[in-house]
Design a binder for these strands. Sequence first.
DNA 1: AATTCAATCAACCGCCTCAAG
DNA 2: CCTTGAGGCGGTTGATTGAAT
Length: 184
Amino acid sequence: MRKPCCEKKETNKGAWTKQEDQKLIDYIQKHGEGCWRSLPEAAGLLRCGKSCRLRWVNYLRPDLKRGNFGEDEEDLIIKLHALLGNRWSLIAGRLPGRTDNEVKNYWNTHLKRKLVRKGIDPNNHRLGLIRPTKSFVSNNHSCKEVNSQADNFPVLNSSTSGPVSNISSFPDLNLDLTIGLPIM
DNA sequence: AATTCAATCAACCGCCTCAAG
DNA sequence: CCTTGAGGCGGTTGATTGAAT
């Protein structure tokens, strides 16, 4: 049997400090990404492996772009979301330097509303299904849909609802979603 | 200047899948 | 075949910041 992931030690939670970031960066630069389970102890961090992975993937990785999304990126996200639904990691995989968390946040805070303003239902990318004025309730936590009729739409294989099933709607999209092996 | 409200985003939580044992 | 843990993912929360009143 395997050892448990995060042994029931005291671990830090909440925002990462600069020192913690530096320890994580130093460790990964020396040893590379790998066993997240043993990383915290090896790197001298009082964090669980999951937390380290998240911090690295979403914030510390050197290839991250950060900053505002360009219009081309917005466009791509919208198209990919229409095809893939909330598969944020797949969508982020098509956007170099962007993380799934970043794409998800951007979708929820900007793009959803943008589509609603155009009269497009962000759940299924169809025109005229929701009224912009009634679609969102502002209650601090980010605009929840009132009339989310498409909550349970099936993804990808539906012929009646959900993400656009006709891929030919986006002839300009490169939909080769295979993942290449990292170059060593 | 103080208070309230809204927007943003980093981080956590819980679930799922896959593989080890 | 079953159980368990690691890793990964999407949903959600909560702290922070900025705008409006």
